[in-house]
Design a protein around this nucleic acid. Structure first.
Lengths: 320, 320
DNA sequence: TCGGACTTACAACCAATGGTTGTGGGTGGT
DNA sequence: ACCACCCACAACCATTGGTTGTAAGTCCGA
C-alpha cells in the first residue's frame, strides 16, 4: 500500500471526481487514475464507482475512508515526531517501570493534548549531551551524583522521591516479615543485575551499601525484568529493590513478596533536568503538573527517609 | 514517506543490525541501507548510529519508533477494513445524527475491541443489495415501508423507536410552547429538505402528513444540516422534525427551540436488517447490546406513540 | 438527433526510482 | 597481522510512475 495513493484516494473522495483531485494535487488526471487503479489492485476491491459526472465511493470505499484518514494522520504524527523546531515534547526516563514513567503517564492523562515522546537513554552522560544538543527536552535523572558535574546551561528541579521496597521470593528469610529495618539488611544478598558501577543507580546503591553494610551484587548482564523476577522467586538467598509504586504483572503462583523497608526508608531522588534556554511550550505545563503531583503528599504522616549524602535537599512535601 | 521504508526501519530497530533485518525481509543488505538512507533523507534526521557491530537508534530514532509502529498498525487496519472474509463489522446507518448512529457509538463504547466500520447508504434498495451481496453486515432501516418487500434471505429485528421533536426558530408561533399536540400541527409548514418521496423517511412522513393533516415540504436539495438549521432559525413560518436525543452543536444566539410533540408521540421505527446466513462473529454481540439497550426503558411511564400503519409491532419496552 | 462539454480509461513514451551484484573502508577479536 | 563482520558506495538494470495524446461513454441543450 502506497501512502501517496492513499492520499490521492482521500483527495478524490473529497473532490468527488478524479479531475478536480488531480488539479488539487497538481498532477494529471491520468496519474490520479493510475494511482487509484493501483490502490484498488493492492487492496483487491473497487473503491470508486466511476460515473460520467465523477466518482463516488463504493461501500468498500466508504468503509476504507476513515481508516485512510487515520493512516495519513499517523504519518503526519510520525513525521512531526522528528521535525526539528516544533516537535512533540521529548522526555528521557531512566527506565520503563520507575517513578518517572509513572509521572509521565499521569501527565499524559492530565494533558492529553500535549504530544509526548518518551525515550530511554543509557546513562547520565548521554542524557546531558542530548539535553545540551536539544535532542531531548527534559530528563528524569538523579543529579549531583559524584563525578558528574552539571553543566552551567542545564537546570535541575527535584521532583519526586521514590521509596524502595524489598522484593523476595517465598523461600526468603524475610518473606513473611511485615517490614524490615534498613540496618537489618546487613549481610543479606541484594541482587541488582544490569546496574553499572559508574551510573547513577550504581552510585546510589554504592552509597546505600556503604552506609548500612549491605551486600549488593550487580554482576551479570541484565536479561530483563522477567528474568530478574524469575530468579528472585526461585532463589531464597537473593532479594532485590523495587520502587514502592511499581505494579507487577506477574502470576500470583510465583509467590513474590514485597517487604517495605523502614527506619529510614531508602528513597531514590529523581530530578527533572532541562536546558536553561529550552523554549518548548509544553515544559511549563510539565513543571506545573509535577509540582502539583508532589504537593498533596504533604498531608500524610512524615517518615524518616534516606538519600545519599550527595542527594542535595529533599523534595518539598514528601511523605509516606 | 514510504511505508516500506518505515517497515524496514522497524525491522532494523528490532534486529539491531542492517544485515539481519535484510535477511528477515528477504532482500539484500544494500537495499536496507538504501531504504534507511532514503527515510533519513525524507525526515531530515539521522535515525541510526552505525557501529561496526550493528546499528542502534539515535534519540530521534527512539522517538520515531513508536510512531512508526502505530503507522504500520494503521496501515494494517486500513487494509483489513476492506479484506474479504474477516473484516470489521460493517454497519449501515440511515444518517450520522440519528438514533442508529447513537446506538452504534454506545455499542463501540461497550465493546471497544470490536472493529467497526460505519457506512451510510443512500436508500433501502442499495442497503438491501449490499446486505445480499455481503458488502455490509447489518443495516438500520425502517422495514415494511410500502413497496419494499423484504427478500427471503434477510431478517429484520425491531430495535428502537426514535421519538421526534419539533424544531423551530425563535420567531415561530410555537416557539414558546412547552409541548404541542400532533393534531395541532395541522396547517403548519414542516420543512424536511432532502427527503426523497420514495425513500423510507419519505414514506414515513407521507403517512404522518396524511393521518394528521400536516403540510410537509421536502422540496429542494439538501444542503446539509447547517443550512437546514440556518433556515429554520431565520424563517418564522418553518419548522422541522428532529430526533429527540439528537444533540445540536449550535451557537446559542441562534435561538433554536425544541418543542416536544405529544398525544401521540411520533416515533420513527428502526429495525436492524441482516443476512440470514451472515456468520460475522460480532453480530450476536451487537444484537445482545441492542436488546439490553432497549430493555431499561420499560421502567419509565408509557406514553401513547404513533408509528405508520405499516410499521408492524412496536419494540418491546419502549417508553418516554 | 446531433454535437459540445464533460467525465474516466488506455497506449506510448521517458525519467527516476529501487532493486541487484561487486567492492571498499572500518572495527574488533584471535 | 589477519580474518570475520559490519555498513556504504558504484555500476548496472528492470520496474515503477509520471507525462502527453487519444478513445469511449454520458449528459445536456440546440
Amino acid at each position: 500500500m502506497d501512502l501517496e495513493a492513499v492520499r490521492t484516494y482521500v483527495a478524490v473522495a473529497e473532490a468527488g471526481q478524479f479531475q478536480k483531485a488531480a488539479t488539487d494535487l497538481a498532477i494529471t488526471q491520468q496519474a490520479v487514475s493510475k494511482r487509484i487503479a493501483g490502490l484498488e489492485r493492492d487492496l483487491g476491491v473497487r473503491l470508486f464507482s466511476r460515473t460520467p459526472r465523477g466518482a463516488e465511493p463504493t461501500v468498500d470505499g466508504q468503509a476504507f475512508l476513515p481508516h485512510a484518514r487515520e493512516l495519513l494522520r499517523a504519518a503526519d504524527r510520525a513525521a512531526a515526531s522528528v521535525r526539528p523546531g516544533s516537535r512533540p515534547l521529548r522526555v528521557d526516563v531512566i527506565n520503563s517501570r520507575g517513578a518517572a514513567s509513572r509521572l509521565m503517564r499521569a501527565f499524559h492523562r492530565a494533558h492529553p493534548g500535549v504530544e509526548l515522546d518518551i525515550v530511554m537513554l543509557l546513562d547520565i552522560e548521554s542524557a546531558v549531551a542530548a539535553l545540551r544538543s536539544g535532542a531531548v527536552d527534559a530528563s528524569f535523572r538523579a543529579v549531583a551524583a559524584p563525578g558528574i558535574p552539571l553543566p552551567e546551561e542545564l537546570t535541575a528541579t527535584r521532583v519526586v522521591d521514590e521509596p524502595l521496597d524489598l522484593l523476595t521470593g517465598p523461600g526468603h528469610a524475610l518473606a513473611a516479615a511485615r517490614s524490615v529495618r534498613l540496618a537489618d539488611l546487613a549481610g543479606h544478598r541484594i541482587w541488582m543485575p544490569g546496574i553499572l558501577p559508574g551510573s547513577e543507580w550504581g552510585a546510589y546503591y554504592a552509597a546505600l551499601a556503604a552506609e548500612f553494610g549491605l551486600t549488593i551484587e550487580s554482576t551479570g548482564p541484565n536479561f530483563g525484568s522477567d528474568a530478574l523476577l524469575d530468579t528472585i522467586a526461585d532463589t531464597p538467598a537473593l532479594a532485590t529493590f523495587m520502587g514502592e509504586d511499581t505494579r507487577l504483572v506477574w502470576p500470583a503462583t510465583y509467590g513474590l513478596r514485597r517487604v517495605p523497608v523502614t527506619d529510614p526508608v531508602p528513597v531514590y531522588p529523581h530530578s527533572l533536568l532541562q536546558h536553561r534556554d529550552n523554549p518548548h511550550p509544553a515544559l511549563p505545563a510539565l513543571h506545573a503538573h509535577l509540582a502539583a503531583a508532589a504537593a498533596p503528599a504533604a498531608s500524610g504522616a512524615w517518615v524518616p527517609d534516606w538519600v545519599p549524602g550527595w542527594g542535595a535537599d529533599r523534595v518539598p512535601g514528601r511523605a509516606r
